[in-house]
Every structure is written in structure tokens, then in C-alpha cells.
Design a protein around this nucleic acid. Structure first.
Length: 272
DNA sequence: TACCATGATTCGTC
DNA sequence: GACGAATCATGGTA
């Protein structure tokens, strides 16, 4: 009799609860969690640890960076990202553990109480689902704050990169030498840019920037750059002479200056 | 501290 | 996507 009554009460309760919560039962898959998961994966925070460095590199590459540049800054970025990753995983683990413990506790409690009041296994399941939803919302907050932390780290890193650093004298020398010896066509090819970048210990895009700035500033104020142009013209001439002295068949990498940008001027006696 | 030099960025054009 | 032009922002110096 007691069992039959318990079952009837459970049925009544079930129907009441269903009518009250029917609307809440079917939730669409959470797009926000998916977005956060994708982002954390792309930034190398979640996912396999092995792929984290590659993901971080890809994230920086997407921001226009190359991992060969300023390795100290990059390693700093990677270190901080690793810290975020570690915190994220330990917090996630904690939440999962807490969720499991709390769920077990509630289930035991409900089973215990089911002896004295009508609690069906379905209701216990529902309760477990509610708890898990609550914990997953907490986890979502964690994911969100982790994403924010990564974004802050990234923007700081990029801001740091934005800071201007003057090139070394040697680098300027190499770039100017190429520029003034190719005044007719100061547009280095990709290969040449790579070579110059290597020689100057800067990036190819820095070489491109430098030539872009140089071309326009030279054109705008030829008079100001005249002295510099003459200096490098003489230097190139001397180099060419030395090269031809050593090997008459050696071909100079410098193309003669003809047309294009105005050439440097010489004094009648052939000197500056 | 003002000023100039210069590397980087942005935007429009081809 | 490369380039020119304008502009920004910082480094160096008098």
C-alpha cells in the first residue's frame, strides 16, 4: 500500500513539475560556449598541451607577427600564456571536481529523503541536470574571463611591439647602401628584402617599411638627402672599383643608377 | 622640454 | 598585395 501510494504521489508530482518546467527542458545548444571553446582552442589555452605553442604562434601570426622576431618578447608572451593555460586548467579541474562532489552529495541526499517523501529517480536526474547547468554556467564565466585575460595579454604584447626601436647603425648602413645604389629603381624584390632583413637582423616587413619611408622622404626632400646620397654613391663606386680590381669578371650586385629617382651630384673634379 | 628624425600604421589607389 | 601619402608615436638631442 505504501509503495503504491508513493508511486501515485510521484506521478502527480512529476506531472505538476513537468507542466511548470516544460518550457525550460529543451535548451538550444549554447552557441556562446562553443564560441569561447573555439577561441580558447585557437589561442592555445585549451586543447592538447603539445599544440599550445603552435596555436600561440598561429595566433600571433594572425596578428601579423613572426615567431622569428624578437624571440625574448615572444618567449615572454608564451610564458604568460602558459600561466593562463595552467590557471585555466587547474580551475576547470577544481570546478569539475566540485561539481561531481556536489552532485553525488545531492543524489545521496535525495535518495535518503525519498524514503520519507515522493522523490522519483527522474526528479533526481532533473536535479543533477540543474546542478550541472549551474556549474557549466560557472565554467562559462571562467572561460570568458580566460578569454579576456588572453586578449589583454595579446593587446599588451602588440602594444609593446608597436614601440619604435631605431635600427642599428650597421643596419641603416646596409639599407642606405642598397637604396642609393639602386636609386633608379629602389624597389627590392622579395628575395632581396629577405637578404637585407637577414643582414640587418630585422624583419622583411621592417625592410619594406624602411624602403617605403625612404622613397617618399627622399622624393620629398632630395636636397636634404643629397649629401647622404653622394656619400653612398662614392662608397659604392669605391666598392665597385675594388671588386673590379680583384676580379674583372665579377658582376656587381648594384645596378647602375639611371632614371627613376634623381641621382646624387658630384663636383666637377669627381669628388663630393 | 621642444624639436626633429624615424619606424610603424592607416588609408586610398592601382 | 604592393605602393604612395599622410599621420601617429616614440627616440634622441640640443
Amino acid at each position: 500500500m505504501k509503495a503504491a501510494l508513493f508511486s501515485v504521489l510521484c506521478d502527480i508530482k512529476e506531472k505538476t513539475v513537468l507542466s511548470m518546467r516544460g518550457a525550460e527542458e529543451e535548451e538550444p545548444p549554447d552557441a556562446q560556449i562553443m564560441r569561447l571553446d573555439n577561441m580558447l582552442l585557437a589561442e592555445g589555452v585549451s586543447g592538447p598541451e603539445k599544440g599550445a605553442a603552435a596555436a600561440a604562434a598561429a595566433a600571433l601570426a594572425a596578428a601579423g607577427e613572426s615567431l622569428n622576431d624578437n624571440s625574448a618578447e615572444h618567449s615572454d608572451y608564451r610564458d604568460k600564456l602558459a600561466q593562463i593555460r595552467q590557471i585555466y586548467h587547474s580551475e576547470m579541474e577544481k570546478y569539475e571536481q566540485a561539481c561531481n562532489e556536489f552532485t553525488t552529495h545531492v543524489m545521496n541526499l535525495l535518495r535518503e529523503q525519498s524514503r520519507t517523501r515522493p522523490i522519483s529517480p527522474k526528479e533526481i536526474e532533473r536535479m543533477v541536470a540543474i546542478i550541472q547547468r549551474k556549474f557549466s554556467s560557472i565554467q562559462m564565466q571562467l572561460k570568458q574571463s580566460t578569454c579576456e585575460a588572453v586578449m589583454i595579454l595579446r593587446s599588451r604584447f602588440l602594444d609593446a611591439r608597436r614601440k619604435r626601436r631605431n635600427f642599428t647603425k650597421q643596419a641603416i648602413e646596409i639599407l642606405n647602401e642598397y637604396f642609393y645604389s639602386h636609386l633608379a629603381n629602389p624597389y627590392p624584390s622579395e628575395e632581396v628584402k629577405e637578404e637585407l632583413a637577414k643582414k640587418c637582423s630585422i624583419t622583411v616587413s621592417q625592410v619594406s617599411n624602411w624602403f617605403g619611408n625612404k622613397r617618399i622622404r627622399y622624393k620629398k626632400n632630395i636636397g636634404k638627402y643629397q649629401e647622404e646620397a653622394n656619400l653612398y654613391a662614392v662608397k659604392t663606386a669605391v666598392d665597385a672599383t675594388n671588386t673590379s680590381t680583384h676580379s674583372s669578371q665579377a658582376s656587381s650586385p648594384h645596378t647602375p643608377n639611371s632614371g627613376g629617382y634623381p641621382a646624387p651630384c658630384y663636383t666637377p673634379d669627381g669628388r663630393l
